[in-house]
Every structure is written in structure tokens, then in C-alpha cells.
Design a protein around this nucleic acid. Structure first.
Lengths: 338, 338
DNA sequence: CTGAAAGCGCTTACAG
DNA sequence: CTGAAAGCGCTTACAG
């Protein structure tokens, strides 16, 4: 293994000079720097991160703390987030450690081991014990999600509130009064997954303001490729003239369901959704929707964390990334129905 | 930050002794060890991994090298593998670094940085340039997949060959002669993804041996939740009495397709599949299938890598994990069709 | 059975 | 503008 010492000897300078060249110190002559760089090239030198870390107490690594997969439900957007975060981190010079054990103990232990400079918590819930670990250790961390108690921590998330209001408005503006909200399984709400709660609650409030009857329908048969929530909703509320879908699994099977029941969109029913952009393209989304850019959220999360790590942050950093409205002609006036 | 020195002072011993206690050296008296452990507890000590790594040149971290997501196609099984590997690594005392950039340069750079002890390459292809990086650097690594040129590297994968043969046999034994193989999009095969190739090619050979006409149908419209490969296959080959599905996306939408076309399984057609076990449960798979245990494959991969890292491996390690046959009554004799 | 000491490969004030 | 030196927090022969 070629070390800094080797490079120094070959270039005829000291270790310190090599180190300064590496960090592009302006104090070093261009001539010396060139000499050193040549030596590094010739020897195939690359800095030993363990040694650097010990010296600087920085690892240039962040930890992505993802919830354990409960049972067998792979969430497509979780997975997409993982990738988006890893890519965003990479772009900012960080490697990413993956922690798939969502127990608070595991997080505390990982923090103690000092293998990373900061952590991003995925799918944060209300009363998430991991959040307390972050607070107590005062370790740099950002929440992907916006739980009820923030405890002074930074967070980044999609603006679910804004998206909910906008979707309700789109339907209200078109004149719809009887609307369905197809959501996640009940346990998602019960477990405090705040993105679900924030969307539902804001939609409910906004609907009331707009004089709309919004009927909540929870998914209860979440089978890959045949989530029946949309179907159940349609059967349970035949008078509804429009539907908001906030549930990836239900969304994926929605088109099939409409076909099955011979329901035409938007002639028989208007449909709007909230979905990650990558999923929208993946399924060639035919519905007017508020589109969440996972990459944008991920990028923002890493930026916030980076600022926190470097100590460049004053006060809490709170970012809600707006979803983009995408029209796909799946909304019509209610009069056209039936 | 509390260091080993602090613990040593408090326990009234030397740093060395503390270190020996940490590594459970049998040379230390139980009395001394107890004293040291008490001091560690009281001070809340935990070892600094950066320092340890520098000293031992081990990081206790492995790198999971996953292919970049091309376009927007999230592969459910890729994601499941990520988790399974991370969990398996954790169980064996390794953390996992996630590398989502599949360029060979990125891998080479990551290896140079010495942030991990070994790497696992996901979705290895024939002629995968990452494989060459592993060979050239002689860095511990295992391939998830079995490319044509192994170059002396370790690999672990599902036994796709065995599964293909068994599925053909199941149908042949039931008397089927006209059978469809619904596979992945053509580019999957063209790009040398060997799991697809090995399954297809073995199935073809076995079919010939059994006097079966096996018609390959490639998926060409891979839309999330409505992959049409199964439908196209049925329409293109109305005489087929059975079908093998090897394509997760097609599998997810298969039930809907059968319903759409009012095709009864197994009365109208027999169906068998190859699928990851987690997916099978996720979609409540109603088809007789060869089930791949991702956890088992992942565990095996980490074990192989661990052996390689510790230098306990003699020669190449080659593991093909057998899929499990699961009967779900989706196979009948061809006579019953129509 | 325990301790003093060297070493892992960097970074960074501090002299010069 | 460059170098000698201390230090980051461990591990591990080597003495004793």
C-alpha cells in the first residue's frame, strides 16, 4: 500500500506538503504541487480514509436509517428514496451507510461507532423513538418526515399539506361534492406515519372549507398488484363523482380496477392522485396528479444534513418541497357522470 | 468523547489491558476484566472505529454494489436483496455501505478509499466491467450472479438452472407439450443479465429433452401494474396449455390478466413460476412455483465474502442456492383445457 | 497476567 | 512557501 510518506519521498518533499497539495492549499507553489501530483500518479496513491478520519474526526459518510421492512411489504417509494438519497449523498461527497434496523438501540450503537457524520431517518413517525436518540446524542441528523414533536431537529419532506389542499381544490373547482379519499391501510395512520396523517387531515379540513363531502376509504387488502382499495371505494360509495388516491399500491392497480368495473375516467369518475414522479413515469400515470420529486427531496435532505454537519446551520432547518401539478385530463365536471 | 485512556485511568489499568478486555483476551483475569467493564459502563465508553480500523486495517464494513436504476424501473427483488444483504451483513458483524453507482470507476475509487473490507456485486452481467475491477485489484468480492467469465472470483446465486429444469419437468410430467415461457424484456437478455439467460437457456434445453415445444415470449411493455407480457403470450399462442412465468412485473399483473381474459387457472391453462419468496407472499402467489429465498442467498453471499476477507477460503467459492418447490394447484393435465 | 512503547497514515498548528 | 513534530485512539508484539 502506497502511503503519503512514499509520495513525499518520491517528490522530494515532506508528508505535510503532500497533505497540503491534497487539500489544495493555496500556500503551495504550483510547481511543487505539480511535482507531488506527478508522484501520486506514478505511485497510484490514494488517501487512506481511515487515517484521515482518525485525524479529522470526519468520515464523509452519512447513514441512511430506513425502517425495517415489516413483513413483506416492499414500498416502492422507500426503495426509490434509498437510491435518491444515496445518489444525492454521492454528489455531495458522501458515501452512504445503510442501516436497515430501525430499533433505537441499533441507531444509538451505530452513532457510537462513529462510522458516519450524520444520519437521515426515513419514514419518521409520530413518537418515533429514533428521533429521541438523535436529540439525546445531539448527533447531526435530519428527519425525512415531519413528526408532531420535532424537538428542534431538522426535517425535510414533501409538502403533503399543500398537495392535499391543491387536489381538493382541483376537484372542488370542477364542482365535485361527493369525493372519495383512497388511503393507506389503517395501521399506517395508527402507527403515526405522518405523511399519511398530514395528507389525510389537511384534505379533510380543506374539503370541509370547500363544502365537499370527503369519504375516507382505507385499504385493507394490500396485495401486490391487486390492491382492492379503489374497487371497494367505488362499490361502497356509488354516488361519488371523484376520487383522490393516496396509496401507491392502490394506484398501481387502479387502472385495472377501472377496467374491471367498466368505469371510464373521467366520464364516470374524476381521479386525482399524489405520487412520486418516478412511479408516475414507471406506470405511465394516466391521472392528473401532484407529483413528488424524490430526487429533489433527497437532494434537499442531504444539503440540510451537510450544513448541519459542517456547523453552517443556524437554528432548525425545515424544508417542505412542493409537489408539482401534472394535468392528465382525468378530471371532468360531475355533471358528465353517468 | 470518552477514550480508552479514560477507561484505563478509571479502572486503574493501562490502555493495553482495556484493549485486551475488549477483545476478550483469555490472558486477562476475570477480576481485572470486571473492573474494566465497570469503568466502561460508568463512562459510557464505546470503541472508536476509525482508530481501530487504522490500527487493524479492517473496517468491518462491506460494500453492496447495486446497479444504477436504469430509467425508472425499480426492481422489487433488487430492493429486497438490498435489505436481505444488509441484514445478513449486520448479523455477521458488518455494516454495509451502499454504492448505487455501477460504473467500474466508481467501484475502483471506492476500493481505493479503503472504507470497506469486501464487496458484493448485485445483478452481475456477462462482461460486467465491475468484475474486472475486482480481479485486477484482487479485492475481496463476491458476485451475486454467475457470469460467463468468472475469472476465479467467488459467486453466489440462486440455482436458476435447476429451477428451470424442474418447472419444465413439472409441466412435462403433467403431459403438456405446448408451453409458453413469459420472460423479461428482450434488453434484459441482450445486456447479459445472466440469471435471465441461465433460466431461459436451461428451460429451452430441458424442454427439447422432454419433447416439449417451449415458446419464448419477451415482455415489451413493462408498465408497473400492467405488464402485458402474459396477455400477449396468451393471444399469440392460443394452443398453449401451460405457461412458465419468469418476470416479476408480469407475475404481479398475471392474475388480473387472467381475470380480464376470463381464463381459468388451471382449467384453461396451467401456470408455474419462479419468484422470490418475499414476493410470493407479498402477492399471495396462487401459482405453483419454484421459490427463491432471498434471505438464504444473501446470507450465503455474506458468509462467502466473510470467509474471503478473513482468508479462510481455499480456492473459489461457488454457491448455487436451490429454489424450493411450492405447490399451489395451478397445474393440471392438458386434457382438461378448453 | 499487565504495562510501556511503537506504529497505523493521516492533518494541522507552529516554526522557520 | 515548506518541514519537523505532535496528535487522533486504537492494537499488538515485547518485556517484565
Amino acid at each position: 500500500m502506497v502511503t503519503m510518506q512514499d509520495v513525499a519521498k518520491r517528490a522530494g518533499v515532506s508528508k505535510a506538503t503532500v497533505s497540503y497539495v491534497l487539500s489544495n492549499s493555496p500556500l503551495i507553489t504550483e510547481k511543487t504541487a505539480a511535482k507531488v501530483r506527478k508522484a501520486m500518479d506514478e505511485l497510484g496513491y490514494s488517501v487512506n480514509h481511515m487515517a484521515r478520519s482518525l485525524s479529522t474526526s470526519r468520515t464523509d459518510t452519512i447513514c441512511i436509517v430506513s425502517p425495517a421492512l415489516q413483513g413483506n411489504s416492499f414500498s416502492l417509494s422507500m426503495c426509490a428514496y434509498l437510491y435518491a438519497l444515496s445518489a444525492a449523498a454521492h454528489n455531495m461527497g458522501y458515501d452512504s451507510l445503510l442501516l436497515t434496523n430501525d430499533s433505537p438501540q441499533a441507531l444509538a450503537k451505530a452513532i457510537d461507532a462513529r462510522k458516519f457524520d450524520g444520519a437521515i431517518l426515513l419514514e419518521v413517525r409520530d413518537n418515533d423513538p429514533r428521533v429521541k436518540v438523535l436529540q439525546q446524542t445531539k448527533f447531526p441528523g435530519v428527519l425525512l418526515g415531519k413528526p408532531r414533536e420535532l424537538g428542534g431537529l431538522d426535517y425535510v419532506d414533501s409538502n403533503f399539506e399543500g398537495a392535499a389542499s391543491q387536489l381538493v381544490d382541483i376537484l372542488a373547482d370542477a364542482g365535485h361534492r361527493e369525493v372519495l379519499l383512497v388511503g393507506w391501510p389503517r395501521h399506517t395512520y395508527d402507527s403515526g406515519l405522518n405523511f399519511a396523517l398530514r395528507f389525510r387531515d389537511t384534505a379533510m379540513i380543506r374539503a370541509r372549507e370547500r363544502g365537499m363531502d370527503l369519504h375516507m376509504v382505507y385499504s385493507d387488502n394490500e396485495v401486490l398488484g391487486s390492491d382492492l382499495a379503489v374497487k371497494q371505494a367505488l362499490l361502497a360509495f356509488p354516488d361519488a363523482t371523484a376520487m383522490i388516491i393516496h396509496n401507491d399500491a392502490a394506484l398501481v392497480s387502479a387502472q385495472q380496477v377501472f377496467k374491471d368495473l367498466e368505469v371510464e375516467v373521467p366520464d364516470d369518475i374524476s381521479v386525482v392522485t399524489l405520487a412520486p414522479d418516478q412511479m408516475a413515469t414507471g406506470m405511465r400515470m394516466p391521472f392528473t396528479s401532484m407529483s413528488i420529486s424524490l430526487n429533489e427531496v433527497a437532494k434537499s435532505a442531504v444539503e440540510v444534513l451537510d450544513r448541519r454537519i459542517r456547523g453552517h446551520a443556524e437554528g432548525e432547518q425545515c424544508v417542505l418541497v412542493d409537489a408539482q401539478r401534472i394535468d392528465a385530463g382525468s378530471v371532468d365536471t360531475p355533471e358528465s357522470n353517468d
